[in-house]
């Protein structure tokens, strides 16, 4: 996918709408386009034991939300295209890995003057999903209010994750 700025009218309007006194609810997921993932970068390393590889995973994710008076809070998962070679969810606990990850905003756009609180508060955890995809769990809070007309804001986040792990020598490391 192309990773560039998208004008507002191209954004899926899933959560845009008029100001409301009813808190918006996000059914367990933040409104997003499908994430844009870059090909993972695999780097052989000398250690520490038992690790032999450092994998850099990058993802871009975007979303739109409408205005509302209440603070919205949720935890959501950013799933990436790094699939652990030979992953079997029944043996997920046997995979030794460590990671260092960040999520940050690199685009913010509002349709009009708004009061807003845009808050990605913390990176909770990193794990491999049932399909073996590297996933980061993030806490997010947001509040938008003060619009005279139906308003919305759109946001884009970037995620950088470095994963120290052991990859079998014969692993197929081609990106999907």
């Amino acid at each position: 996918m192309t990773d560039y700025y998208q004008p507002l009218h191209n954004i899926a309007p899933a959560f845009s709408g008029p100001p409301t006194d009813v808190p918006l609810t996000f059914a367990g997921a933040i409104p997003t386009w499908p994430p844009t993932s870059y090909a993972p970068l695999y780097i052989p390393v000398a250690g520490p034991s038992p690790y032999n590889s450092l994998v850099l995973v990058r993802t871009v994710i975007s979303g739109t939300t409408g205005s509302g008076p209440s603070t919205q809070g949720m935890a959501f998962d950013l799933t990436t295209n790094f699939v652990f070679p030979g992953y079997d969810f029944r043996n997920a606990g046997e995979i030794a890995f460590r990671h260092s990850s960040i999520v940050y905003a690199d685009m913010f756009q509002a349709t009009e003057e708004l009061n807003f609180d845009f808050d990605q508060t913390q990176v909770n955890s990193g794990f491999f999903s049932d399909t073996g995809n590297w996933t980061i769990s993030v806490n997010f809070f947001g509040q938008i209010s003060g619009a005279q007309n139906p308003g919305e804001i759109s946001m884009r986040w970037r995620m950088w994750s470095w994963i120290l792990c052991y990859l079998p020598p014969a692993a197929n490391l081609s990106p999907p």
Binding site: A46, N124, W162
Partner: peptide, 23 residues
């Protein structure tokens, strides 16, 4: 700071890579 993590990766006997993330 919060959500901090540090990866220490051995590159050679004399060089180490440190990856430090946080908020």
């Amino acid at each position: 700071v919060t959500s901090t993590s540090v990866l220490q990766v051995d590159i050679t006997s004399a060089q180490t890579m440190l990856i430090i993330s946080g908020i």
